[in-house]
Each structure stands twice: as structure tokens, then as C-alpha cells.
């Protein structure tokens, strides 16, 4: 019973602080994802391109990012390069998360584009469409629908991964939990509460992506209009 009252106590005492921290978690994730999407688009087009040099650049980037831990990337951007450029902890965190997630998003977009039947591009090209036009008008509109489920999944991973920015003293959810726990010495209850906050954010996000997915369902065509 004390467990339960302790949890209630933590929420009533620190609920607002956790809410503010949630906002920090959401904003650093959102900004990093915006950045990651841009990087993802650029590097996926490098990978799809027939230019060997661009392919190599994309492979190098994706290889390095996937081959090193996110925490190392965060530390590197905050402390590692501090002698050359000093970034605020928020900027360094958002940047590191964005660069990290961008590599995975590049692979997701590439996978979605390459899952579109080759015949689609051939049909478009045979009608005289230049490759860029064919990609824009024919391939991407089909590919982005396929990219949404794995992108949603990646966004959730990023939201949870953002907890690592606590180690460069961004006052996000996880950092707040560390502080609260250091004061009350109730790790069970405190981590339980912070877990709950993360879970609720993820559930809300999942609800939204499911709605979007349904709305864009490729397998169900829009109602055919009478001619």
C-alpha cells in the first residue's frame, strides 16, 4: 500500500516538473526528427542515385552512424568537439539524435522506394518522363505510404532514445527522474512514474500514426466517381 501512496505522492509533488520535462523530451525529439527526415531524404536519394560517388558517401555515413552507439555520438557532439565549437546541450542533443536517426530514416525511405515494382519506373520512363519527374509523380506518391509504418516505429525508438540526452544535462523526462530519485531515494516508484510518462506519450503517438495509416491505406482506393 505504501508503494501506491508513494507513487501518488511523487506525482502530486513532481507531476508538473515531469510534465515540463515531457515537453522537453517531445520538443528535442520533434526537432531531431525534422532534421533526421531532411538527412534521410538526402541520403536515401544518394543511395538510390546511379552516381557511384554519392552511393559511397551514403554508405559511409550510414555505416559510421549505425556502427557507433548513440551515447558516443551525443558525447562527441557535446564534449568531443567543444574545443572547436561549443553547442548548447539542447542543440548538441538534438543534432546528435537527428544525425543518428537520419541514417535509419534514409534506409527506410530507400527500402520503400525500392519496394515499388520496377515496372512503374519503366512505364513512366517509356512515356518520356525524365527520372526526376517519374520519381516525384509516380514513385514517391506510392512509396511514402509504405514508409509510414516503419517511420512511425522509428519515431517511437527516437523518442525513447532521446532519454540519453540526460547525460549532457538536458532536463528531459529521464534527467528529471534521476534528480527526483536522488532526492527521495525511491527508485522503484520514481522510475515507475517516469516510465508511465514515456508510455503515455508513445501511446498517444501510436494512436495518431494508426489514424494516418488508415487514412492513407493504399489497398483501399477512393470511391470511384460515376463518369
Amino acid at each position: 500500500m505504501t508503494l501506491f501512496t508513494n507513487i501518488i505522492d511523487i506525482i502530486s509533488e513532481h507531476g508538473i516538473a515531469f510534465l515540463k520535462a515531457s515537453w522537453m523530451t517531445i520538443s528535442i525529439t520533434a526537432i531531431s526528427l525534422l532534421f533526421a527526415m531532411i538527412i534521410g531524404f538526402i541520403f536515401s536519394s544518394f543511395k538510390i542515385s546511379s552516381n557511384k560517388i554519392l552511393n559511397r558517401i551514403a554508405d559511409l555515413y550510414i555505416g559510421i552512424i549505425r556502427g557507433t552507439p548513440l551515447i558516443v555520438q551525443i558525447m562527441f557532439l557535446y564534449y568531443g568537439i567543444a574545443n572547436f565549437v561549443t553547442l548548447s546541450s539542447f542543440t548538441a542533443g538534438a543534432l546528435a539524435l537527428g544525425i543518428h536517426t537520419g541514417a535509419y530514416i534514409a534506409e527506410i525511405i530507400r527500402g520503400a522506394v525500392q519496394s515499388i515494382d520496377r515496372g512503374q519506373l519503366e512505364a513512366a520512363r517509356s512515356l518520356g518522363m525524365p527520372k526526376s519527374l517519374a520519381m516525384r509523380r509516380i514513385i514517391f506518391p506510392q512509396a511514402y505510404k509504405r514508409a509510414i509504418p516503419p517511420l512511425g516505429n522509428q519515431f517511437i525508438i527516437s523518442l525513447k532514445d532521446s532519454s540519453l540526452v540526460a547525460y549532457i544535462s538536458v532536463t528531459d523526462l529521464y534527467n528529471t527522474a534521476l534528480t527526483v530519485q536522488g532526492e527521495n531515494f525511491m527508485p522503484f516508484e520514481t522510475y515507475f512514474v517516469v516510465g508511465l510518462y514515456y508510455l503515455i506519450i508513445v501511446l498517444i503517438f501510436t494512436f495518431i500514426t494508426n489514424k494516418v495509416e488508415k487514412k492513407l491505406d493504399v489497398s483501399k482506393p477512393k470511391e470511384a466517381l460515376p463518369a
Partner: peptide, 10 residues
């Protein structure tokens, strides 16, 4: 004209 039509499904 292709064997598998290749119409744009969207």
C-alpha cells in the same frame, strides 16, 4: 505496352 500493364495504381 507491357505484359503486366504497369498502370499507376494511385
Amino acid at each position: 505496352v507491357f505484359q503486366h500493364f504497369n498502370l499507376f495504381p494511385h
